[in-house]
Simulated scan of single mutants.
Amino acid sequence: MTLDTGHVVAFDESVQYAVRKAGSWKSSILGGEGLVTDFTGPGRVWYQTRNTSDLLEWMISKMPAQRGS
């Protein structure tokens, strides 16, 4: 399984992984592609459909507003 590194949450110890660059250097610079993680072997991988910054932005938008004293 190959996932964008920003979507990986956790994985079992039994899972082997390798991080690599997605695409060519040109596509990384011009297209915004970054790093991906390749997972192999038995075990489970947990991932999220939003990258970390988008997930945090969404969570903050759902939190009640802070009221100062």
Rank of each mutant, 00 (worst) to 15 (best):
M1P: 03
M1C: 13
M1Q: 14
M1L: 15
M1Y: 06
M1G: 14
T2I: 10
L3N: 10
L3I: 11
L3W: 04
D4C: 06
D4S: 10
D4Y: 10
T5M: 15
G6A: 05
G6W: 00
G6R: 15
H7G: 01
V8S: 08
V8D: 11
V9W: 04
V9E: 13
V9N: 10
V9F: 08
A10S: 07
A10P: 02
A10R: 08
D12N: 09
D12Y: 02
E13M: 05
V15I: 08
V15G: 06
V15H: 00
Q16N: 13
Q16I: 00
Q16H: 04
A18F: 06
A18K: 11
A18V: 09
A18P: 01
A18Q: 14
V19S: 04
V19D: 13
V19Q: 14
R20P: 01
R20L: 11
K21P: 15
K21F: 02
A22N: 15
A22R: 14
A22F: 09
A22W: 11
A22C: 14
G23Y: 09
G23L: 14
G23I: 09
G23Q: 14
S24F: 05
S24E: 08
S24H: 13
W25I: 04
W25E: 15
K26I: 08
S27M: 02
S27N: 02
S27I: 04
S27V: 07
S28Y: 03
I29R: 12
I29Y: 06
I29S: 04
L30P: 02
L30H: 11
L30R: 11
G32D: 12
E33Y: 08
E33W: 03
G34F: 10
G34I: 03
G34P: 01
G34Q: 13
L35V: 04
L35Y: 08
L35T: 04
V36T: 11
T37R: 04
T37V: 12
F39E: 05
F39R: 09
G41L: 12
G41R: 12
P42R: 10
P42K: 01
P42L: 09
P42C: 03
G43F: 06
R44V: 00
R44W: 00
R44Q: 00
V45W: 04
V45K: 07
V45M: 05
V45P: 07
W46C: 03
W46Y: 15
Y47E: 02
Q48C: 01
Q48S: 12
T49G: 02
T49Q: 08
T49K: 10
T49L: 11
R50H: 08
R50E: 06
N51G: 07
N51K: 05
N51P: 12
T52P: 00
S53W: 03
D54V: 00
L55I: 03
L56Q: 03
E57F: 01
E57Q: 13
M59R: 06
M59D: 06
M59V: 01
M59F: 07
I60R: 01
I60V: 09
S61A: 10
S61K: 06
K62G: 07
K62Q: 15
K62N: 09
M63R: 07
M63A: 09
M63T: 11
M63E: 11
P64V: 01
A65G: 10
Q66S: 07
R67F: 09
R67H: 07
R67I: 13
G68V: 12
G68D: 12
S69M: 04
S69P: 08
